[in-house]
Protein backbone atom coordinates (compact mmCIF):
# COMPACT_ATOMS: atom_id res chain seq x y z
CA UNK A 1 0.00 0.00 0.00
CA UNK A 2 2.79 2.37 0.94
CA UNK A 3 4.13 2.20 -2.58
CA UNK A 4 0.95 3.47 -4.17
CA UNK A 5 0.23 6.12 -1.54
CA UNK A 6 3.64 7.70 -1.66
CA UNK A 7 3.62 8.85 -5.31
CA UNK A 8 0.04 9.99 -4.89
CA UNK A 9 0.92 12.30 -1.99
CA UNK A 10 3.90 13.53 -3.98
CA UNK A 11 1.69 14.18 -6.98
CA UNK A 12 -0.76 16.14 -4.86
CA UNK A 13 2.01 18.24 -3.42
CA UNK A 14 3.39 18.93 -6.90
CA UNK A 15 -0.05 19.89 -8.15
CA UNK A 16 -0.53 22.24 -5.22
CA UNK A 17 2.82 23.85 -5.87
CA UNK A 18 1.97 24.21 -9.53
CA UNK A 19 -1.32 25.83 -8.57
CA UNK A 20 0.34 28.33 -6.22
CA UNK A 21 2.71 29.27 -9.01
CA UNK A 22 -0.14 29.65 -11.48
CA UNK A 23 -2.15 31.84 -9.11
CA UNK A 24 0.92 33.97 -8.46
CA UNK A 25 1.63 34.42 -12.16
CA UNK A 26 -1.98 35.37 -12.80
CA UNK A 27 -2.36 37.75 -9.88
CA UNK A 28 1.05 39.37 -9.95
CA UNK A 29 2.97 38.92 -13.16
CA UNK A 30 0.05 39.58 -15.50
CA UNK A 31 -1.12 42.63 -13.62
CA UNK A 32 2.18 44.47 -13.40
CA UNK A 33 2.48 45.26 -17.14
CA UNK A 34 -1.20 46.10 -17.23
CA UNK A 35 -0.72 48.65 -14.46
CA UNK A 36 2.19 50.10 -16.41
CA UNK A 37 0.06 50.48 -19.54
CA UNK A 38 -2.69 52.13 -17.58
CA UNK A 39 -0.33 54.46 -15.71
CA UNK A 40 1.69 55.45 -18.76
CA UNK A 41 -1.38 56.36 -20.74
CA UNK A 42 -2.63 58.50 -17.84
CA UNK A 43 0.74 60.26 -17.72
CA UNK A 44 0.77 60.90 -21.45
CA UNK A 45 -2.64 62.56 -21.10
CA UNK A 46 -1.44 64.53 -18.08
CA UNK A 47 1.75 65.69 -19.79
CA UNK A 48 -0.04 66.74 -22.95
CA UNK A 49 -2.28 68.95 -20.82
CA UNK A 50 -4.04 71.47 -23.02
CA UNK A 51 -2.40 70.02 -26.16
CA UNK A 52 -4.52 66.92 -25.77
CA UNK A 53 -6.90 66.70 -28.73
CA UNK A 54 -10.39 65.29 -28.10
CA UNK A 55 -9.60 62.28 -30.32
CA UNK A 56 -6.48 61.37 -28.40
CA UNK A 57 -8.28 61.88 -25.11
CA UNK A 58 -11.06 59.56 -26.18
CA UNK A 59 -8.58 56.91 -27.28
CA UNK A 60 -6.69 57.11 -24.02
CA UNK A 61 -9.92 56.68 -22.10
CA UNK A 62 -10.75 53.63 -24.21
CA UNK A 63 -7.29 52.24 -23.60
CA UNK A 64 -7.71 52.62 -19.85
CA UNK A 65 -11.16 51.07 -19.92
CA UNK A 66 -9.77 48.05 -21.73
CA UNK A 67 -6.95 47.75 -19.22
CA UNK A 68 -9.55 47.84 -16.44
CA UNK A 69 -11.55 45.18 -18.18
CA UNK A 70 -8.50 43.00 -18.49
CA UNK A 71 -7.82 43.41 -14.79
CA UNK A 72 -11.32 42.27 -13.99
CA UNK A 73 -10.88 39.31 -16.33
CA UNK A 74 -7.68 38.36 -14.52
CA UNK A 75 -9.50 38.61 -11.19
CA UNK A 76 -12.24 36.39 -12.60
CA UNK A 77 -9.72 33.82 -13.75
CA UNK A 78 -8.14 33.87 -10.33
CA UNK A 79 -11.46 33.44 -8.56
CA UNK A 80 -12.29 30.55 -10.88
CA UNK A 81 -9.00 28.84 -10.07
CA UNK A 82 -9.61 29.28 -6.34
CA UNK A 83 -12.88 27.32 -6.25
CA UNK A 84 -11.39 24.01 -5.07
CA UNK A 85 -9.11 25.67 -2.52
CA UNK A 86 -10.92 28.54 -0.83
CA UNK A 87 -14.13 29.02 1.18
CA UNK A 88 -14.20 25.37 2.20
CA UNK A 89 -15.85 25.92 5.59
CA UNK A 90 -18.82 23.63 6.09
CA UNK A 91 -21.57 24.92 8.36
CA UNK A 92 -25.29 24.81 8.91
CA UNK A 93 -26.83 27.07 6.30
CA UNK A 94 -30.27 28.60 6.35
CA UNK A 95 -30.79 29.13 2.61
CA UNK A 96 -33.44 31.79 3.18
CA UNK A 97 -30.90 33.89 5.08
CA UNK A 98 -28.22 33.08 2.53
CA UNK A 99 -30.39 34.31 -0.34
CA UNK A 100 -31.11 37.43 1.70
CA UNK A 101 -27.37 38.12 2.08
CA UNK A 102 -26.72 37.54 -1.61
CA UNK A 103 -29.63 39.75 -2.66
CA UNK A 104 -28.52 42.54 -0.29
CA UNK A 105 -25.18 42.58 -2.13
CA UNK A 106 -26.87 42.66 -5.54
CA UNK A 107 -29.30 45.38 -4.49
CA UNK A 108 -26.46 47.72 -3.61
CA UNK A 109 -26.23 48.43 -7.35
CA UNK A 110 -29.42 47.11 -8.91
CA UNK A 111 -33.15 47.06 -8.41
CA UNK A 112 -34.40 43.53 -7.85
CA UNK A 113 -37.45 42.05 -6.19
CA UNK A 114 -37.01 38.56 -4.78
CA UNK A 115 -39.67 35.99 -4.03
CA UNK A 116 -38.24 33.05 -2.11
CA UNK A 117 -40.37 30.16 -0.91
CA UNK A 118 -39.78 27.02 1.17
CA UNK A 119 -36.00 27.13 1.17
CA UNK A 120 -34.27 24.49 3.29
CA UNK A 121 -31.59 24.49 5.96
CA UNK A 122 -28.65 22.18 5.32
CA UNK A 123 -25.04 21.62 6.35
CA UNK A 124 -22.82 22.56 3.44
CA UNK A 125 -20.27 25.00 1.98
CA UNK A 126 -22.09 28.16 3.02
CA UNK A 127 -19.92 30.72 1.31
CA UNK A 128 -19.89 28.75 -1.93
CA UNK A 129 -23.65 28.40 -2.05
CA UNK A 130 -23.98 32.12 -1.38
CA UNK A 131 -21.63 32.87 -4.27
CA UNK A 132 -23.84 30.75 -6.56
CA UNK A 133 -26.96 32.68 -5.57
CA UNK A 134 -25.13 35.99 -5.78
CA UNK A 135 -24.08 35.48 -9.40
CA UNK A 136 -27.46 34.12 -10.47
CA UNK A 137 -29.22 37.11 -8.89
CA UNK A 138 -26.62 39.52 -10.24
CA UNK A 139 -27.24 38.17 -13.75
CA UNK A 140 -31.00 38.44 -13.32
CA UNK A 141 -30.62 42.07 -12.23
CA UNK A 142 -28.15 42.95 -15.00
CA UNK A 143 -29.65 41.32 -18.07
CA UNK A 144 -33.09 42.81 -17.93
CA UNK A 145 -35.04 45.63 -19.47
CA UNK A 146 -38.04 45.02 -17.28
CA UNK A 147 -39.17 48.01 -15.25
CA UNK A 148 -39.65 45.77 -12.24
CA UNK A 149 -36.99 43.02 -12.32
CA UNK A 150 -38.08 40.01 -10.25
CA UNK A 151 -36.67 36.65 -9.29
CA UNK A 152 -38.46 33.59 -7.94
CA UNK A 153 -36.43 31.09 -5.94
CA UNK A 154 -37.73 27.73 -4.81
CA UNK A 155 -36.37 24.39 -3.71
CA UNK A 156 -37.53 20.80 -3.99
CA UNK A 157 -36.18 18.05 -1.77
CA UNK A 158 -34.92 14.98 -3.61
CA UNK A 159 -33.35 11.85 -2.19
CA UNK A 160 -29.74 13.05 -1.99
CA UNK A 161 -29.93 16.66 -3.07
CA UNK A 162 -32.04 19.77 -3.15
CA UNK A 163 -33.16 21.02 -6.54
CA UNK A 164 -33.03 24.82 -6.54
CA UNK A 165 -34.85 26.85 -9.17
CA UNK A 166 -33.99 30.47 -9.86
CA UNK A 167 -36.31 32.08 -12.36
CA UNK A 168 -36.30 35.68 -13.58
CA UNK A 169 -38.38 37.97 -15.76
CA UNK A 170 -35.33 39.28 -17.61
CA UNK A 171 -34.61 39.54 -21.32
CA UNK A 172 -34.02 35.82 -21.79
CA UNK A 173 -31.67 34.22 -24.30
CA UNK A 174 -31.87 32.56 -27.67
CA UNK A 175 -31.86 28.77 -27.72
CA UNK A 176 -28.50 28.60 -29.52
CA UNK A 177 -26.67 30.67 -26.91
CA UNK A 178 -27.81 28.53 -23.97
CA UNK A 179 -25.07 25.92 -24.24
CA UNK A 180 -22.41 28.62 -24.23
CA UNK A 181 -23.46 30.65 -21.18
CA UNK A 182 -21.37 28.59 -18.77
CA UNK A 183 -18.20 29.16 -20.79
CA UNK A 184 -15.52 31.44 -19.36
CA UNK A 185 -15.64 35.00 -20.73
CA UNK A 186 -18.70 34.28 -22.83
CA UNK A 187 -21.43 36.87 -22.64
CA UNK A 188 -24.67 36.59 -24.58
CA UNK A 189 -24.79 40.38 -24.81
CA UNK A 190 -22.53 42.57 -26.92
CA UNK A 191 -19.70 44.11 -24.89
CA UNK A 192 -20.72 47.67 -25.71
CA UNK A 193 -24.21 47.08 -24.29
CA UNK A 194 -23.21 45.48 -21.03
CA UNK A 195 -20.19 45.57 -18.85
CA UNK A 196 -20.50 41.86 -18.05
CA UNK A 197 -17.34 39.81 -18.22
CA UNK A 198 -18.81 36.37 -18.71
CA UNK A 199 -17.27 35.10 -15.49
CA UNK A 200 -20.27 34.73 -13.15
CA UNK A 201 -21.95 31.71 -14.70
CA UNK A 202 -18.74 29.80 -15.37
CA UNK A 203 -17.89 30.31 -11.72
CA UNK A 204 -21.38 29.14 -10.72
CA UNK A 205 -21.02 25.97 -12.75
CA UNK A 206 -17.57 25.27 -11.38
CA UNK A 207 -18.83 25.68 -7.79
CA UNK A 208 -21.91 23.51 -8.31
CA UNK A 209 -19.76 20.79 -9.83
CA UNK A 210 -17.25 21.09 -7.03
CA UNK A 211 -20.07 20.54 -4.53
CA UNK A 212 -21.12 17.44 -6.46
CA UNK A 213 -24.16 18.88 -8.20
CA UNK A 214 -25.25 19.79 -11.72
CA UNK A 215 -26.75 22.90 -13.26
CA UNK A 216 -28.91 23.54 -16.31
CA UNK A 217 -30.67 26.48 -17.87
CA UNK A 218 -33.81 27.11 -19.89
CA UNK A 219 -34.81 30.42 -21.36
CA UNK A 220 -37.40 32.19 -23.46
CA UNK A 221 -36.25 35.24 -25.35
CA UNK A 222 -38.08 38.29 -24.05
CA UNK A 223 -39.72 36.43 -21.16
CA UNK A 224 -37.00 35.26 -18.79
CA UNK A 225 -34.46 32.64 -17.81
CA UNK A 226 -34.60 29.79 -15.34
CA UNK A 227 -31.61 28.10 -13.77
CA UNK A 228 -32.01 24.74 -12.05
CA UNK A 229 -29.31 23.20 -9.98
CA UNK A 230 -28.94 20.14 -7.80
CA UNK A 231 -27.00 20.75 -4.60
CA UNK A 232 -26.13 17.65 -2.52
CA UNK A 233 -27.67 17.49 0.96
CA UNK A 234 -24.40 16.45 2.52
CA UNK A 235 -20.75 17.22 1.88
CA UNK A 236 -18.85 14.17 0.64
Amino acid sequence: MMHSEQPCAQQLEDLQKEYEEFAYIVSHDLKAPLRAISNLSAWIAEDLGDDLSPDVEKNIQLLQKRADRMERMINGLLEFSRVPRFDLEVREVNVTQLVQQASDRVRQNHALEIHASSLPTLTTYGKKLETVFFHLLQNAATYTQHENPQVWISATEEENAFLFQVKDNGMGMKEETLDKVFKMFYSAQAKDQHDGLGVGLSLVKKIVQFAGGTISVTSTLGAGTEFQFFWPKTVQ
Partner: peptide, 9 residues
Amino acid sequence: VKPIQYDSF
Protein backbone atom coordinates in the same frame (compact mmCIF):
# COMPACT_ATOMS: atom_id res chain seq x y z
CA VAL B 1 -3.11 46.58 -3.18
CA LYS B 2 -1.74 48.68 -6.02
CA PRO B 3 -4.62 49.72 -8.24
CA ILE B 4 -4.43 49.37 -12.01
CA GLN B 5 -5.61 52.94 -12.61
CA TYR B 6 -3.23 55.82 -11.97
CA ASP B 7 -6.13 57.97 -10.72
CA SER B 8 -6.83 55.43 -7.99
CA PHE B 9 -3.14 55.29 -7.11
